[in-house]
């Protein structure tokens, strides 16, 4: 498991400067992605997972700004690169698939135009060659009649098809790292499965690493090797997918898993996490989850819990994490 890291984020801080105040969307996030692995980045809406992904490419929309930290990609800090150098990395080294398949393609240009544009931006090829390559990519993402479909405009295609094209566009320059921001959220369940399967296969075939941003525990369970759970701009638990599902330690992770419907348990009611994600302009002191946590102590409101390795390869940011391990050992599972 201990393969080389392709991306290492240290203490990344991204704030949004709005009229209402400074939104601390990502506040000291550290994570690493190893070569060839799929890292799941899980959390509720507004937990900062998408902003983390955008920060890696340095395309955080205004009024967002990366305040500090390091993003080390293949040994180089991306935050020290010039805009021109970043443009060479975006799409070529690190590709991005956005949430909405419907809106991630420009409605006024044909698919051929949009694909060849990206291909020609990063590779020195003629228009005809770029088109051939685009048609090839259509075959790779399993679209029927690629020679015809490539001339379509986005509005002529279905959501699943558009997401396949978004994937094709992301893969067009054979990136080493793929950032997939909720790639299946807006698709039908059956299409979701197809797209996930496709991404998984392509990742293997091309030997990429991937960060899969999602709020859907079901999606990460099937695809991710390791999971980072994010809450209110911070990472609260890191472990392999197996560990996260079998032995979650952070109360937030547990709550998140309990909120997933499970037919086998035959419960009538789903457990919900009380309250909403906090306002990130003035987040709760100490552990950001403490106002919603069933296990909170007085101490939780004052101390920021560090991310501590509880077992090998299992990091938890909770001061009571050790206790929870013991309870689980005694069989007091959730």
């Amino acid at each position: 498991m201990a393969s080389k890291e392709i991306l290492k984020i240290e203490n990344l801080t991204t704030y949004f400067y709005t009229w209402a105040g400074v939104v601390k969307a990502v506040d000291g996030v550290s994570l690493d992605v190893r070569e060839g692995e799929t890292l799941g980045l899980v959390g509720e809406s507004g937990s900062g997972k998408s902003v983390t992904a955008l920060s890696i490419l340095r395309i955080v929309p205004r009024p967002g700004k990366i305040i500090g930290g390091k993003i080390i990609y293949k040994g180089e800090n991306l935050l020290e690169k010039t805009e021109g150098e970043m443009q060479q990395i975006r799409g070529k080294e690190i590709a991005y698939i956005s949430q909405e398949p419907g809106t991630s393609l420009n409605p006024v240009f044909s698919i051929a135009d949009q694909l060849t544009e990206v291909i020609r931006r990063h590779q020195n090829v003629t228009k005809e060659e770029a088109l051939k390559r685009a048609i090839e990519l259509f075959r790779i993402v399993e679209i029927a009649d690629p020679e015809i479909k490539v001339w379509n405009y986005p509005h002529q295609l279905s959501g699943g098809m558009k997401q396949r094209i978004a994937i094709a566009k992301a893969l067009s320059c054979q990136p080493s790292l793929l950032l997939a921001d909720e790639p299946t959220t807006n698709l039908d369940v059956t299409i979701q499965a197809q797209i996930l399967e496709l991404m998984k296969n392509l990742k293997e075939k091309l030997g990429m690493s991937m960060i899969l941003v999602t709020h859907d525990m079901g999606v990460v369970a099937g695809v991710a090797d390791r999971i980072n759970v994010m809450y209110a701009g911070r990472i609260c638990e890191v472990a392999s997918t197996k560990t996260i599902f079998r032995n979650p330690l952070h109360p937030y992770t547990r709550a998140l898993l309990e909120a997933v419907p499970n037919v086998a348990l035959r419960k009538d009611k789903l457990k919900i996490i009380p309250g909403t994600i906090p306002n990130l302009i003035s987040p709760p002191s100490g552990c950001r989850f403490h106002p919603r946590c069933d296990f909170a102590l007085a101490e939780c409101a004052s101390t920021v819990p560090p991310l501590v390795e509880i077992e090998s390869e299992h990091y938890v940011a909770c001061i009571r994490a050790k206790e929870f391990t013991e309870k689980t050992v005694r069989g007091v599972k959730r």
Binding site: I59, Q87, A95, S98, R121, K169
Partner: peptide, 9 residues
């Protein structure tokens, strides 16, 4: 955002 993410100027 997608256009920026694909490295266009």
């Amino acid at each position: 955002l997608a256009a920026r993410a694909s490295g266009l100027s």
